[in-house]
Amino acid sequence: MAAVLEPLPQPDPPGAKTSASTDASHASGSGLKPIKRLISDSRIERIVPESNAATHLQYCSQFARDFIRADYNFCAAKVTVARGGKIRALDAAFRESGEWLGKALTWIEQHPTRSFPLEHEVIELKITHPLAGRLVRCLTQYDRIFVRSMEVLLAGKIQSHERETLLLNAGKRLKHIVQVCIPDNDAYLTDGTRKTK
């Protein structure tokens, strides 16, 4: 099954009237461009998953949208075929990222403020391996930091540059996981460290 998660647009019947503004408003209430297709969907289709599960992920940040579209399937495929030292390296990367995101979320949530509802998009993601499930959790934490930090900023509890730094660092934690996924299994020693050339 391809990872095209939204129905393809159907041709309009003869004589039907369409408007670009109606199509745009129907496409997304969050203002984010809808994800029509995930990159690396053919890669993930070629692997034998360790688990055959799926989850619905809600997101409202541009970073989460871009990560889901460009990196999620790639990472889900790579963690499923990872062996030996690479599994240890990935486990360490997920643990460090998850701990950092958790601490950042705890810090931002300690600021009392009002809830500011934002429109969220929902997408179904395949969970091919327990590590892919941990990646979904990290993405959820990132998006929660995004929303909560906006609420705290609007309440005047933090400055805009503090929020930008927080989101930049949170994004780097997720991008680090992608970097650990890229090398093949034989690029890692059994203890999870990268081999030196």
Rank of each mutant, 00 (worst) to 15 (best):
V81P: 03
F94R: 00
I87K: 04
I68E: 02
A64C: 10
V81N: 11
A89M: 03
I87H: 03
N73Q: 14
D66K: 03
A92M: 12
R69L: 12
Y72N: 03
F67K: 01
D91L: 09
D91W: 13
C75P: 01
R69D: 07
S61H: 01
A92S: 10
A92C: 09
G84Q: 04
F74V: 11
A76F: 07
K78W: 09
A70P: 00
T80G: 08
R83P: 04
G85K: 02
G84M: 11
F94M: 06
F94V: 06
G85N: 05
A82K: 03
R88D: 08
Y59T: 03
V81S: 15
R83K: 15
A76Y: 00
K78I: 10
I68K: 00
F63W: 07
Q62V: 11
V81Y: 15
G84C: 13
G85V: 06
A76K: 02
R83C: 14
L90E: 02
R65V: 07
R69H: 13
R88M: 13
Y59I: 06
A89G: 07
G85E: 03
A77C: 10
L90P: 00
A64S: 07
I68C: 07
F67C: 05
A64G: 04
R65P: 00
F74R: 06
Q62G: 14
G84L: 13
N73V: 12
I68R: 01
K86P: 01
V81K: 08
F74D: 10
Q62S: 14
A76C: 09
F94P: 01
D66G: 09
Q62M: 13
R88C: 13
F63P: 01
R65A: 15
D66I: 01
K78L: 11
A92V: 09
N73S: 15
G84S: 14
C60N: 00
T80M: 12
I87Y: 10
D71E: 11
R88E: 12
A89H: 00
D66Y: 04
G84N: 12
A92R: 04
N73R: 05
F63T: 03
A82I: 01
V81H: 10
R83N: 14
N73D: 14
R83G: 14
A92T: 05
F74C: 09
R83S: 15
A76D: 04
Q62C: 14
D71T: 05
F63V: 04
Q62R: 11
F94L: 14
L90I: 08
R83E: 15
V81G: 09
C60I: 04
T80K: 07
F94H: 02
C75V: 09
A93Q: 02
A93M: 03
D71S: 13
I68V: 12
S61G: 07
A64I: 05
K86N: 12
F63G: 08
A77D: 06
V79E: 06
R88N: 11
